[in-house]
Design a protein around this nucleic acid. Structure first.
Lengths: 257, 257
DNA sequence: TATCATTTGTTCGTATGTATC
DNA sequence: CGATACATACGAACAAATGAT
């Protein structure tokens, strides 16, 4: 592959480097040639080389460190170990895999209201009162961070111990709701987007690492939403696993959005 | 917010624009001021303005079109409608929500071998023979594209109609395996990463849109893996939903990675 | 500790090409 | 066709981080 075609120079340089990495000429963790060297080798200006490397950065192919150089990122087919989304129940005790993840900061409890997104999810109108609790927890196995939020409608907390323990962990909330006579089921949705700058700093995310957003809704047996949880985690740092059961009925059919 | 601090100019400009979008001064779909205008307004050079806008592009905040300008992207809290991962069974007939998604291209069938990733997932050694089938399917509701791959070990296809129908759809494969006497269960893992350039073009992904990778493994009742599927979809274009059932035993416990 | 060479980061100026309307 | 807007490319200079001397 040579630099002559009638295509933008920086794209050609990026393509050459991308191919070289794919061919194993530059192994993960190793250093690419310096910008000055690449500039000489391909007879292009340094700004052009920088533009090529900028493209590789946004693809997540390289990490660049000021004063050192451009490192090939380990682009593993499969990322960190899988975190199970399972909920385990024994009698009236619930546990989830994230239960024993330490909190990097004390939980933040606050009052808020339903908005255009959370309202429909909880089956409520807009501007209904909610108790929120934000947590920053850390996977002890990998060090990966997760932002976890619980939103409890007043109707759910009312006349239960939840009124006085807004900072309860999810598995504790499940137990409290079960003790209050509810028969719980859960549904999750997951999607990915690029993190906002403050999410990147809070989660210590490198460049070009997407955010996975998992929304879990806890339902009563009647289908009434009781609780909304949202988890945000760096995509490369975690995969999520769950079981699929073939449904012959429509019990868990689309409750939509 | 003004441009004076002792921080890189392009970061200040990016922060101002980011804040303006967050404050609703520039609504989704609307046009940012042109580079020349921003350059004048904040008394910085046009390359500096371009650097600021480049930052907003990699964050997915704006879409830039040559000759037109920089559009604020609709950064909805919740993206496209949820695609259910449910498998529905009636007698020996299976169906999944993607069954009736049209194929943008004819499926590609090929032979390959297990590698360091697929081997362990299928409980096989390295370099065991597989039948692969790649599909490019389209969500009729949204137009979003998905790359879908099935990997069938020879041991699974052997002595079933699968030998002669390598391009069978997943739900057809489930039916064939069930007819062959298997009692099927499924597990999925999901993670996100930035797409490779060819994945971006194949899936028509805009800039700064991550890729969601869903891996589904079909197991026999004995826990033997029979089939590996991988789906790749643009993150913003789809959310995935599934039911969580509280397990009191360890039936669906961690089968790892 | 201080200095220096190397490497990337930031910023400007300038010119030309290409897409849109 | 022309005005506007973004894309590409080069050159130049200085700042900041890094690691070795």
């Amino acid at each position: 592959m040579e630099i002559t075609r009638n295509e933008p120079l920086y794209k050609q340089v990026a393509a050459v480097l991308r191919q070289a990495v794919a061919d194993g000429e530059y192994l993960p963790g190793s250093l690419l040639p310096s910008e000055a060297q690449l500039s000489q080798r391909y007879r292009v200006s340094r700004p052009t080389v920088r533009q090529a490397i900028a493209a590789l950065r946004t693809e997540g192919l390289v990490d660049v460190v000021n004063g050192k150089g451009s490192f090939v990122r380990a682009r593993s087919g499969r990322p960190a170990p899988t975190v199970e989304r399972t909920i385990t129940r024994t009698d009236n005790h619930f546990s989830t895999p994230t239960d024993d993840w330490p909190e990097a900061e004390p939980p933040t409890v606050y009052r808020t209201q339903t908005d255009a997104v959370t309202g429909p999810l909880l089956g409520l109108e807009s501007e209904e009162a909610l108790i929120g609790c934000d947590r920053l927890i850390t996977d002890p196995a990998t060090g990966a961070r997760t932002l976890h939020q619980t939103l409890v409608p007043f109707a759910t907390a009312d006349s239960t111990p939840l009124e006085n323990t807004p900072e309860a962990r999810p598995s504790e909330i499940y137990a409290i709701l079960t003790a209050a006579g509810h028969d719980l089921t859960w549904r999750e949705t997951v999607y990915a987007r690029m993190p906002l700058p403050d999410e990147r700093t809070a989660l210590h995310l490198p460049e070009a690492v997407p955010l996975m957003v998992i929304t879990r809704i806890t339902y009563d047996a009647s289908g009434q939403p009781l609780l909304l949880e949202e988890s945000r985690t760096g995509g490369i740092h975690a995969a999520f696993g769950y079981a699929i059961t073939a449904a012959s009925d429509k019990r868990h059919a689309v409750r939509s959005r």
